[in-house]
């Protein structure tokens, strides 16, 4: 039901909007939603922080960029390669890193993000270094050209909706419960027979793959990528999307991505004070509704319902 509403919304917006700026903004929201959703699976559900997600985003973008611009591959062939390479990288990184927890995991993933950024900058023979990689072709599927902004908008949102749908299913399954169990108490989770180490690696890989898909969509949208789009601040921005929208909520990821994409655009009226206003909004959200916008609204509703409910009797064996 919610998917139908969202789909109708995207379709209406796609056909209703005429300004290229608004269409592009909506497309970016879709891409950012994918990033936030992926990180939310890792951070919000499994409780493992990653401050290096921009590296996976970049890996997806650069793999498809290099393969299509330098080697003239079809983007549809480059996509599985980008996904597989990112998954392999994430797997290798996750094995040692996920032994860490809390701040240490944060620092570890931060280090990985830095390495990614340096590689994108310094491997100039492939990535073009600081001057960037140009000439990434736009996507085409038979007679359908995604060079058209509206078509690309629909493509991005179709992918985003599919991912939201799949993640929603995953969360409401045995695996989703196990992930939340790890978040709540790793000790208790393993005493319930959950292989916590393995599951954390799996969700890290899934999260990275979603970032790579977002990177693929980003590269073919803008046709020019440079290391600056995948630096440390981008990682932080993805984390902020998750935190603002609300951890452990697929719809929160969507909301957080929307807020974090639209906010910097609308705040340009404040010009010089933009960052200050932006920071204040974040601080306010953290203090007033630390569980995030989406969860915060939902909690108020649930609490109201709970008060009217009856109180059951105690355990009687």
């Amino acid at each position: 039901m919610r998917y139908l509403i969202l789909m109708a919304g995207v379709l209406a917006a796609g056909f209703g909007l005429s300004s290229p700026y608004q269409i592009q903004l909506l497309t970016f929201i879709g891409i950012n939603s994918l990033l936030a959703l992926g990180l939310n699976m890792l951070m919000g559900y499994a409780g493992q922080i990653s401050l290096g997600h921009a590296a996976f985003f970049g890996l997806g973008a650069y793999v498809t960029g290099v393969l299509t611009a330098h080697f003239h591959w079809s983007p549809w062939l480059a996509l599985p390669v980008a996904i597989l390479l990112t998954a392999a990288a994430a797997f290798l990184i996750a094995l040692p890193l996920l032994e860490l927890s809390g701040f240490y995991l944060g620092m570890g993933t931060l280090g990985f993000g830095m390495i990614g950024y340096v590689v994108f900058r310094q491997w100039s023979s492939l990535t073009g270094g600081d001057s960037g990689l140009v000439g990434i072709p736009s996507l085409e599927l038979g007679p359908l050209s995604f060079a058209d902004a509206k078509n690309y908008l629909f493509l991005v949102w179709a992918v985003a909706l599919l991912c939201i749908f799949l993640c929603d299913r995953l969360i409401h399954s045995r695996i989703g419960r196990a992930l939340r169990a790890i978040h709540d108490s790793e000790r208790a989770a393993s005493s319930m027979g959950i292989d916590t180490g393995r599951l954390k690696v799996h969700i890290f890989v899934l999260s990275a793959v979603m970032a790579a898909i977002a990177g693929f969509l980003y590269a073919h949208l803008v046709s020019f990528i440079s290391p600056g789009s995948f630096d440390f601040l981008v990682s932080i921005r993805i984390v902020t999307m998750v935190v603002i929208g609300g951890m452990a909520s697929v719809w929160g990821a969507l909301l957080g991505a929307s807020v974090m994409t639209i906010l910097p655009e609308t705040l340009t009226v404040f010009t010089e004070y933009e960052m200050i206003v932006y920071g204040l909004i974040m601080i306010t959200i953290m203090i007033v509704i630390p569980q995030g916008l989406f969860r915060g609204i939902l909690d108020i509703y649930e609490r109201a319902r709970f008060r009217t409910g009856s109180i059951p009797a105690g355990p009687q064996a």
């Binding site: 169990a181 978040h183 709540d184 108490s185 000790r187 208790a188 989770a189 005493s191 452990a248």
Partner: peptide, 10 residues
């Protein structure tokens, strides 16, 4: 567990 360890978010 001696100190109850439930999954608090569930």
């Amino acid at each position: 567990f001696q100190n109850i360890e439930l999954f608090g978010s569930m």
